[in-house]
């Protein structure tokens, strides 16, 4: 007897399951409600990610091509993977007569970065911050090594306010 009841119960359970999949297939397809498939976001320019999204480390530059980094190398020390390298030099400030350190290159190895956020937390000047770009695909590994300070940029004259 259990042989036949198994067949009946099996068909029944299969139909119950197919009712759910059928509902999603026909009803939701026709009414266009509750459709959950999403395309890959090719609209990278207009796409809005969440504010806190951790895509890559970037350096803030204002409109005069100035940044806040004073080459303290705290981010370099905070990084667990060695993704940040800072090449700095000293320059005589004619006003104060003291040697001031400035960055020549702030090198960021995206290929080694794990997006842990310790560098940004360590930065006392808020010079580096999160960028929202997630589209990091490159054919060459070398292209993932980036120089964060833009060419010809200078350090911002210090003001008390942040950001």
């Amino acid at each position: 007897m259990s042989y036949f009841s198994d067949i009946i119960n099996g068909t029944k359970s299969l139909l119950i399951g197919m009712r759910i999949t059928g509902k999603y297939f026909f009803v939701n397809f026709l009414t266009r409600k509750d459709v959950i498939t999403e395309q890959y976001p090719d609209n990278l320019e207009t796409l809005n990610m969440f504010d806190r999204y951790r895509g890559e480390v970037t350096m803030y530059h204002n409109e005069n091509n100035e940044h806040r980094c004073d080459a303290c190398t705290l981010c370099e020390k905070a990084c667990p993977n060695g993704s940040i390298e800072i090449i700095s030099d000293k320059e005589l400030n004619p006003e104060t007569g003291k040697n001031v350190r400035y960055i020549v290159k702030h090198i960021y190895h995206l290929e080694m970065c794990t997006m842990c956020g310790l560098c940004i937390e360590a930065c006392p000047q808020d010079a580096i911050q999160w960028g929202q770009n997630f589209h990091h695909v490159q054919y060459d590994r070398g292209k993932l090594t980036k120089v964060l300070n833009k060419p010809g940029s200078k350090i911002m004259i210090k003001t008390k306010e942040k950001k």
């Binding site: 806190r52 999204y53 951790r54 794990t114 997006m115 956020g117």
Partner: peptide
């Protein structure tokens, strides 16, 4: 997760 923590899988 993404909205509050900033990442989807390795939230840290």
């Amino acid at each position: 997760f993404e909205e509050t923590c900033g990442a989807r899988l390795t939230m840290n």
